[in-house]
């Protein structure tokens, strides 16, 4: 029995290895490995079969053949649609990140300045929407922004406009939707950072004759850098690939890459082109993602 026990101990990995191994293996298998598959499929050709792509390697006449089809990528470069979709996504993501920062920073600052009890309540209020479906929150705007919706009715009632203005199915609606959906993701990391600031620094600066604006610009903002980076990345990266908001609020002129990828995949059933789109999107986003991971790691070290 004891030899069996000893054998068992030798065969079973140690606790430490298990604790690291389980999450590592899961994430490797279901998060990292799939990206290599996307890369592989992006080099194959679309075929009418199940699954709808060709194999990129074959064994014919005792020769291992690897066929890399670069056609999908040259298609992306040649077709105006894809390029403008990438540019459109980047523009919408950049501008809405900026808007989120401009709205979110004062909000986070305001929360960090209230009493501790109040801070908890306000944080809950900010956090609550992030748990509700983005789909539903976007849907709520559809009713408000439509031609005979509440916003137009309100504006006409005020006498500001005489006939309904078209907002739904335009880029304006997409901006409203994106800022609305992603604002909490900007406020939360900013708050987490701002609340740790040492107030005595500001007091010392004021005692030495620094103005409020100077204080804010030279002390608060530089100290909040990690929070700003984290917040901006939490907004920017997912918005580039956003699908639901442009699909529901945007119009035909709203070209965003997430939407194009969805159409290629589900409507055209062109898996290789969809994969190539994803690979290029990832290549564009890899720098922001690394920045985000680094700011997260820094935040962890700062608190440890």
């Amino acid at each position: 029995m004891s030899t069996f026990h000893q054998a068992l101990i030798r065969v079973l990995p140690s606790g430490r290895k298990l604790v690291i191994g389980i999450p590592f293996l899961w994430l490797f298998l279901f998060f990292m490995l799939p990206f290599f598959l996307v890369m592989k499929i992006s080099f194959s050709e679309a075929t009418v079969s199940i699954p709808p792509y060709s194999q990129i390697y074959g064994f014919v006449d005792q020769k291992l053949q690897v066929l890399l089809n670069l056609g999908n990528y040259s298609l992306l470069g040649a077709d105006e649609l894809y390029i403008s979709a990438y540019l459109g996504s980047l523009k919408i993501a950049l501008l809405s990140t900026l808007m989120c920062l401009l709205i979110g920073f004062p909000m986070a600052y305001g929360i960090s300045k209230t009493r501790k009890e109040m801070q908890n309540v306000l944080l809950l209020l900010i956090m609550m929407p992030t748990w509700t479906a983005i789909l539903i929150r976007v849907y709520a705007w559809m009713g408000i922004l439509s031609n005979n919706g509440l916003l137009n009715a309100f504006l006409m009632g005020c006498g500001l406009i005489s006939s309904p203005i078209e907002i739904l199915n335009t880029n304006t609606a997409v901006y409203i939707g994106v800022v609305y959906a992603y604002l909490p993701f900007m406020v939360l990391p900013l708050y987490a950072n701002l609340v740790k600031h040492d107030q005595s620094l500001l007091e010392a600066a004021s005692d030495l004759g620094s103005s409020n604006f100077n204080n804010f610009w030279k002390i608060t903002v530089p100290l909040a850098k990690n929070g700003i980076v984290a917040g901006c990345m939490l907004v920017f990266i997912p918005v580039v690939g956003e699908f639901v908001i442009p699909e529901l609020l945007g119009g035909p002129e709203t070209l965003m890459i997430g939407r194009v990828l969805w159409q290629e995949f589900f409507n055209n059933r062109d898996w290789p082109v969809a994969s190539a789109l994803a690979v290029v999107m990832l290549a564009i986003l890899i720098i922001p993602i690394v920045l985000f991971n680094r700011s997260q790691a820094k935040e962890m070290e700062a608190r440890a």
């Binding site: 690291i20 999450p23 590592f24 994430l27 490797f28 298998l29 279901f30 998060f31 990292m32 490995l33 799939p34 990206f35 598959l37 996307v38 499929i41 990345m233 939490l234 990266i237 997912p238 580039v240 690939g241 956003e242 699908f243 997430g258 990828l261 969805w262 995949f265 898996w271 969809a274 994969s275 994803a278 999107m281 990832l282 986003l285 922001p288 993602i289 690394v290 985000f292 991971n293 997260q296 790691a297 962890m300």
Partner: peptide, 24 residues
């Protein structure tokens, strides 16, 4: 690498994760 794998799903666009998992 582990830290990156843990935090990256937070920001990864869902269309990429969805497509890659399906292919897997």
């Amino acid at each position: 690498l582990f830290g990156g794998l843990v935090t990256a799903p937070l920001v990864m666009p869902e269309v990429i994760t969805g497509l890659s998992l399906l292919l897997l």
